[in-house]
Design a protein around this nucleic acid. Structure first.
Length: 642
RNA sequence: GCCUCCGUAGCAUAGUGGUAUUGCGGCGCUCUCGUAAAGCGCAGGUCGCGGGUUCAAAUCCUGCCGGAGGCUCCA
């Protein structure tokens, strides 16, 4: 058999000689800008000869395909490492993969500052200009050990791959050779533009106990224009950064005398928080939750029982008073369990759904703190559902519905579900109940599949007491965070005696579901600030209306109208300054007030306002009562686009 | 906690060895004004904090504090 039959994405077939490379086939088909080839679902180099006696499904990949982009960035990482090792010969390259936005490479024995970037980028340009070919070589373990005799990391990886029975490959471009499984693009010249982005520390194999390496991040594109566009988009995204907007819109401040991770909400920020607070509390009460109010501190023995003290002691605020040791509570769970256990429960009483918007305190490491997203005191819309086993499915489903309702109401659309499971190998983190773990996870997976949720599964992301479903979102920097969570707990009932009397008059342990509906108020605020770039929907905007008086003889009447509106529940301010209307309009626009209302001669006679929406549209003169009715309706309905 | 970057008035900024620039905001006066910045004047700064080098430090060195991004962590 001297030819292979290829099946192309458009359904046509093509015969090529055995041993043809992707490169040759692409050329014959007149394909341009091809970076890699997908063969039966696996991305490969264009340089690799194809051999098969079966028909092969092939697809050519460009930078617009995930696989092509990854090969491109992966090759870029090699070029960067080549430049760095040329300039810093003592540096030991370790790993350098593509990531969501570009690539990085980790080095040992390298001290680098951003001031070094220009000369590295110069070196990179030389490599690109030389247009070296990426040559793929299959090597033996012995050869790998010889090639990388000065690099213990590469040797370690080579041995590991060999032990796993993998074929060892090394890629060479110019005089730079790297242990790597590929795939790579054909030549360095295909890289149009590359820029180094930042430096950070990173631990070898992601373990804090190992050596800290120097990680260099970079980005690259086939075309210089794309790089320019990327950098521009990045700048634009950062304008939405909630820390920046929080300051500009006067929502919160940080003060070094108060302490790290302890932001202070201003009146405007507090209004936004209050809207979220009232919304979720009212909604949960409608859905059968009972609210509790429990102390923000307790004796540490409470957290000893729950197991938190053993797991998180160094992350708790602990202090001694008299003979007792106390802690500011890092979570609500045991406090609410004490409410459950105040009396005996019949199976008929279940489920018991205890909710609380609880202030929690966690001593997060200083490097973890970020704006309103990771802080040391926060308010979690928390709840614990204590139910019978036969109720778990329905309760879990109801929680998901509540969360979906919350996201819809807030207008949050970019999220994904993560099914967070344990890792049997991580003995320190999880309670040692392998049977319960597997059983609970299986049951949870069934529920998720029944609900037809699309989710990603994540090992080693569970809570120490059970698996979770997390709702994940990204901030403007692209960093992922958990916004809402539903957790199964098969430990609490035993430890705290959360039982009920079943229909056989026997005491039985209950199941516990921990869940958060609107998440941590501060974090949710941060995401909302970034999503709306400060242009909040009417119902949550700290300032919904501003009345601008044309001259001071209209001030008193404008104040009366404003008071009528406040009495009805509208957040309105009056700008009585003796400034030009243009200036007052400009400032109201910059504050993203939803409606800007001018009040002067014409309006005074008719109890009206001339209304302008912040989208720059003038709605004309409207009677106060008519306008109020419309505004109140949109507030009540939580309309998103006003 | 670790790596990198940043820190000038309430905010935004100029200033790489000779004690600080400009705008917004604030205050005062004039203007009573119709949909994105009226005019004039005034006040406001231990240049994050401490130590060092120097005749002289916002600027150079060093230690700390605070912020940002990444790593690790995230009940």
């Amino acid at each position: 058999m001297s030819t292979i039959t290829l099946l192309l994405p458009d359904g046509t077939k093509k015969e090529v000689p055995q041993g043809s490379t992707g490169q040759e086939i692409a050329q014959q088909l007149g394909k341009k800008n091809i970076l890699a080839i997908e063969v039966d679902g696996t991305v490969q180099d264009l340089m690799k000869p194809l051999e098969s006696d079966k028909e092969l499904n092939i697809k050519f990949l460009t930078f617009d395909d995930e696989g092509g982009k990854h090969a491109f960035w992966h090759s870029s990482a090699h070029v960067m490492a080549q430049a760095i090792t040329t300039l810093f010969p003592q540096a030991k390259p370790t790993i350098g993969p593509p990531v969501d936005q570009g690539f990085y490479y980790d080095f040992d024995n390298l001290e680098l500052s951003e001031e070094d970037f220009p000369k590295i980028e110069e070196e990179i340009k030389k490599i690109i200009k030389a247009n070296y070919e990426f040559k793929r070589n299959v090597i033996t373990l012995d050869k790998a050990k010889r090639l990388f005799k000065d690099n213990k990391y590469k040797q370690e990886m080579a041995e590991e791959y060999a032990n796993d029975g993998k074929e060892l490959t090394a890629y060479q471009d110019g005089d730079f050779i790297d242990l790597c499984e590929g795939p790579h693009i054909p030549r360095t010249g295909l890289i149009g533009a590359m820029k180094l982005m930042k430096i950070s520390g990173a631990y070898w194999r992601g373990d804090q106990k190992n050596t800290q390496l120097t990680r260099v991040y970079g980005i690259s594109f086939p075309d210089k224009k794309q790089l320019k566009q990327y950098l521009h988009d990045l700048q634009e995204a950062l304008k939405r950064d909630h820390v920046r907007l929080g300051k500009k819109l006067d929502l919160f401040v940080v003060n070094e005398h108060v302490g790290q991770g302890l932001p202070l909400l201003t009146p405007r920020g507090t209004t936004l928080r209050r809207e979220l607070y009232r919304f979720i509390q009212d909604e949960e009460i409608k859905r059968g939750y009972k609210y509790t109010n429990t102390p923000v501190l307790a004796k540490t023995e409470l957290y000893k029982i729950s197991g938190h003290l053993d797991h998180y002691r160094e992350h708790m605020f602990i202090f001694k008073m008299g003979d007792d040791e106390f802690a500011l509570r890092p979570m609500t769970c045991p406090h609410q369990y004490m409410i459950y256990t105040r009396k005996k429960h019949s199976y008929r009483d279940l489920p018991v759904r205890l909710a609380e918007i609880a202030d929690l305190f966690r001593y997060e490491a200083s490097g973890e703190l970020h704006g309103l997203i990771r802080i040391r005191q926060f308010s979690l819309a928390d709840a614990h559902i204590i139910c019978r086993n036969d109720q778990v499915r329905e309760e879990f489903t109801n929680v998901i519905e509540l969360i979906q309702f919350v996201m819809k109401t807030l207008g949050l659309a970019e999220y994904w579900y993560r099914f967070s499971k344990w890792d049997p190998k991580n003995k320190d983190k999880y309670v040692d109940e392998p049977v319960l773990w597997e059983q609970t996870q299986t049951e949870m997976k069934q529920i998720l599949d029944e609900l037809k949720l699309e989710y990603v599964e994540a090992e080693d992301e569970a809570a120490f007491y059970g698996p979770k479903l997390d709702i994940q979102m990204r901030n403007v920097y692209g960093k992922e965070d958990t916004m809402f969570t539903v957790q199964m707990d098969f430990v609490a009932a035993k430890r705290f005696g959360l039982t009920f009397i079943n229909d056989k008059d026997k005491e039985e342990e209950a199941m516990v579901i921990h869940r958060s509906s609107i998440g941590c108020l501060e974090r949710t605020m941060a995401l909302l600030i970034e999503k709306y770039a400060g242009k909040f929907p009417l119902w949550m905007n700290p300032e919904q209306l501003r009345i601008l008086t044309v001259a001071d003889r209209f001030n008193a009447q404008a104040q009366t109208i404003a008071q009528r509106m406040r009495d009805a529940g509208i957040r309105v301010e009056v700008d009585t300054r003796t400034q030009s209307i243009s200036k007052k309009v400009r400032e109201a626009q910059l504050d993203y007030v939803n409606y800007i209302c001018v009040f002067g001669e014409k309006e005074a006679d008719k109890d009206s306002l001339t209304v302008r929406h912040r989208s720059n549209t003038i709605l004309g003169m409207i009677h106060v009562d008519t306008f109020m009715a419309q505004v109140l309706k949109d507030i009540k309905n939580k309309t998103l686009d006003v």
